[in-house]
């Protein structure tokens, strides 16, 4: 097992957030986390990415506690819903900055630029790019260190059909490369096409953990999208 999540919890104002939640993730799984807004999906992902600290519980990645940030920082790549890039700098600058800080050779930046079809935009300032392109840069940046686990918070939110398809393609490609992927989504077709496993959160509690087939045949899916 690659990820061991035990009783991880984070409550805001004693109500919203995530109640103690436990589950395991095996290497190479592509997990979709679904649920209504405020169900605790983003909170869970942000805790896995070390963005927020849990009130309790722990997360182990390949046997190492997530609290040991230095040891696991290269193992997890997090892509938030809104791209968090240095807007006033170019695409190449952003990637090179993070490559420098992560001690990754610039050759890898060139690989990412080519792999994500970003070469034509390498000198463009991030603030001039569309949301889809920014998201592509964001995913590229997260993949610079070639992390084993990739966490995406609503990766296709606000994207048009073409861009959404591109993101699906990228996720499939990364999954084929053996990466473990966890993402949140509100789109049934996205979950059906991509996920190998589905977790459903409701009011901060994990209420379903199963395969897409089980999920789409269950009442939970009907209740969530009725």
């Amino acid at each position: 097992m690659q990820l061991e999540i035990r009783n991880i919890a984070k409550l805001y104002d004693q109500k919203r957030g995530l109640k103690p939640t436990s589950f395991d993730v095996d290497k190479g799984e592509l997990i979709a986390i679904v649920g209504h807004n405020g169900a605790g999906k983003s909170t869970l992902l942000k805790m896995l990415a070390n963005w927020i600290l849990p009130d309790g519980g722990h997360v182990m990645i390949d046997g190492i506690d997530l609290k040991n940030r230095a040891a696991v920082v290269r193992s997890v790549g997090f892509i938030p819903e809104d791209p968090n890039l240095f807007d006033f700098f170019s695409v190449a600058y952003n990637l090179k900055l993070f490559a420098l800080l992560s001690r990754i050779p610039f050759l890898r930046v060139e690989e990412i630029l080519s792999e994500f079809d970003l070469q034509p935009f390498r000198k463009s300032k991030v603030q001039t790019l569309s949301k889809g392109l920014k998201q592509r840069v964001n995913i590229g940046r997260a993949l610079l260190s070639d992390p084993e686990v990739l966490i995406l918070d609503e990766p296709t939110s606000g994207l048009d059909f073409e861009m959404t398809r591109e993101i699906y393609h990228l996720l499939n490609k990364m999954h084929d490369a053996g990466k473990t992927i966890i993402f949140t989504s509100h789109r049934p077709e996205e979950i059906r096409n991509l996920a190998t496993r589905i977790l459903v959160l409701h009011e901060g509690c994990l209420i379903f953990d199963g395969s897409p087939q089980e999920y789409f045949q269950s009442d939970i899916h009907q209740e969530l999208y009725s």
């Binding site: 968090n84 993070f98 997260a142």
Partner: peptide
């Protein structure tokens, strides 16, 4: 505000 600090903390910097 722009979550840039959190992005930087996803690199090995302390």
């Amino acid at each position: 505000e722009k979550k840039l600090l959190l992005a930087l903390l996803q690199t090995p910097i302390t």
